[in-house]
Amino acid sequence: MTPFRYSRATDVADAIRQSGDCNTRYLGGGTNLVDLMRETVERPEALVDVSGLSRDIEELPDGGLLIGAGVRNTALAEHRSVRTRYPALSRAILAGASAQIRNMATVGGNLLQRTRCAYFYDDDGSRCNKRLPGQGCDALEGFNRNHAILGASPSCVAVHPSDMAVALAALDGVVHLHGARGERSFPVADLHRLPGDRPDVDTLLEPGELITAIELPPLPFAARSTYRKVRDRSSYAFALVSVAALLDVEDGRIRDVRIALGGVAHKPWRAFKAEEVLRGGPPRAAAFTAAADAELADAKPLAGNGFKIELARRTIAAVLGELAGETA
């Protein structure tokens, strides 16, 4: 680890001021950033600790929730409104990492955690375009069982590892940002980029921009949302494929639906195509599979991850089937 300065931000403005230097990083729970610093993948000169800012979960007048970026993952998963009104989010968080890590991890940090691609982590011995643009990608022809089937590029096939972000993308979550140029917000589903030829840039965040909160809109049918994570062991493993979904069925028709996939792309993958296919149609198994097929039509397997296409297809259909069964 390279030596660095540490300071604690007193408020949002203070954080933004302190981050003036572009080799400064915000520190949440540190469960990802500090690991990457130990591996010398990240070498910031200064850390500004923002984990003490915005730790509240606020009920909004319109029925939504405003979740401070410093809220710990455990606190969010356990929150009563989250458990009852947005169960997919609670389940997604609890499906991730371990209890100890969730106790430390913050909402902001979870969203911005970086890929687990082994070649990205291996600063000493492997090539990675995400770590060092232009260096080449050892994952393309290497171990890529965990890698992307959607939206990848020849320069990067890594996936975004967060479970929470997948649920937020499905739940139409909105991320609130503060930067030197003021405030802005956009859908969580748009926060992360596809790799293209700049895999070193994970998100649309500008340098020094701070996540202050996530907003969950009131989505009554989110109370019947769920999250299913498929992985190589029962706990403490990243998703091979995960599905967050909400289904609103009325009079035998799908009135509304949201689906997001994890473990398949460089970002939490909102399955707009599948949603499109389903809206207005019958909540039947055949429709669910057709929707999955529509979403996965563009999927491209690598040597080690071809199984993910079939796995995603089946998991999407099963999750929708489960939700349809519940609402029937």
Binding site: R116, A118, D138, G142, F143, R233, S234, Y236, A237
Partner: peptide, 24 residues
């Protein structure tokens, strides 16, 4: 995960090298 191109172990951690957890 032994990368046969370079002879390098690519999952040198308990997060990526899986052993059973309690739930398994």
């Amino acid at each position: 995960q032994f990368d046969e191109r370079k002879g390098r172990v690519m999952n040198p951690s308990l997060s990526e090298y899986h052993v059973p957890v309690h739930m398994d």
